[in-house]
Design a protein around this nucleic acid. Structure first.
Lengths: 245, 245
DNA sequence: CGGTCCTTTGACACAGGTCAAGTAATGTGG
DNA sequence: CCACATTACTTGACCTGTGTCAAAGGACCG
């Protein structure tokens, strides 16, 4: 049985590859070469829109990497597991982000929908063929990959050298910046994931994440509208904490 | 004054871009399309060979990103700093590896030679022009970037979820695997970096790294031939420790 | 309205950090 | 060739930030 419902032809499958959204930083690079109508058509002809229910897996680490996806709605978490169950979430993906890009035969990580999620799905082989024909696509993917690489290095700094408080604050600012890049408000940050996901993303435990939220609230640095909505009361102070001043 | 000595035309500047070495995993992908003689010539015409003395900086985070480099000899560390001096080394680069790839105006990290090092240097603008003309180059870079991204995710798992012992063992195996990929012996692992660099790579302190080496030696899992040469006595047991069994 | 899941809070433990001292290897000037 | 820095590494004693374990709300739901 299939994990998710498929609609084809795509209703409004606005893949990042077809038309980069100009509010996102990544796209500033990609903007160098938007696709012409014919290229758009060819790309659209191989893609499928996919709807995924909350908490459903999209693929698992070590599954054969047959598709590449582009998030077009909702949110996705990607993570790796150790044999004993320890988990590290390596990224939260929002509309515009890609997943499943690899040059191995298998995926390097597992992916799961956080809430109701919409994806554009590309058969990998067909996409690779198209890459040969439309070099601009490759440019765009390289731009995205190099952007992700920079983000990964920031995350290594966070995981290797920052305190719990610095991690949580960095995370909140990261989510806030992400919202802004997607044309939303910076201030009441919406967290589509639960504490356990935040903990596994920051290399902490749920208890430490919870205690740190409480501590930040007590210090009047943030306000918890509810569990998933955070108001950033002193952005400047928060920025200093996050960067380790 | 220049930080490093330059020789041009390149004596034997065997850039990975020109001819991928077939012993390296990354190249398995890149092997899809080797450059033809004309393409090789054009690429060679923009590259310069550079020699760097031990512990000399190659570039600093936030410097304008004017060049892209390919390590051809020696070893390089790349790292990020927090304002208070905390450091996270995000990678050790060996022959075949790239550094300086970015789509921002500035480098995202600092780079420094570990020992005597040789690099191929490409002016970024010229390389970007060449990318438009030779799509195969872009393919190769994308392959490398996606390989690095997978490695970055492994490192996040290590930094976020592994114990000190697991980190050190993972590191030793990583260095051993790297040696094998470059056609060297798996067993006496050579560590071109000092304890402080290892600590900053693993998100630990020098003391913890040192104690962990001692502990592994006491348990007869490794033997320290000298400070920089480690013999892996029980590869199987070490592999289990690294993967968290 | 009882059950389940998520979050918060408290008490305590411990892995790894900090501080300090000792040792070994290497270089340097006399 | 030897005093003597200097630097890198190791080891010990102690401390602390974060993890562990346990319990108590709350929110949601059948």
């Amino acid at each position: 049985m299939s994990r998710f419902s498929v609609t084809k032809p795509p209703a409004r499958c606005a893949s990042e590859l077809v038309s980069p959204c100009n509010t996102c930083e990544v796209r500033d690079f990609a903007a160098c070469a938007p696709l012409n109508p014919d290229e758009q058509r060819r790309l659209a002809s191989i893609m499928t829109s996919v709807e995924i229910a909350p908490h459903q897996p999209i693929f698992d680490e070590a599954d054969p990497a047959e598709h590449v996806y582009n998030v077009t709605g909702g949110a996705v978490k990607i993570y790796k597991l150790l044999p004993d169950g320890r988990r590290q979430i390596t990224g939260f993906l929002l509309p515009g982000d890609f997943l499943g890009l690899t040059h191995k035969e298998a995926y390097a990580y597992s992916a799961e929908a956080l809430g109701p999620t919409r994806l554009c799905r590309f058969p990998r082989r067909k996409l690779e063929n198209l890459l040969d024909e439309i070099p601009k696509l490759e440019q765009r993917l390289l731009g995205m990959a190099s952007h992700e690489l920079a983000a990964a290095q920031d995350q290594m700094m966070l995981l290797g050298r920052k305190s719990a408080k610095e991690r949580v604050v960095s995370f909140l600012l990261m989510m806030s910046n992400g919202a802004v890049r997607r044309g939303k408000l910076a201030d009441p940050v919406t967290l589509p994931m639960n504490r356990s996901d935040i903990a596994d993303y920051l290399g902490l435990t749920i208890e430490t994440v919870s205690r740190t939220f409480t501590q930040l609230r007590t210090q009047k640095l943030i306000e918890l509208l509810d569990e998933k909505q955070v108001r950033l009361l002193k952005p400047e102070a928060l920025r200093e904490i996050a960067t380790g001043f």
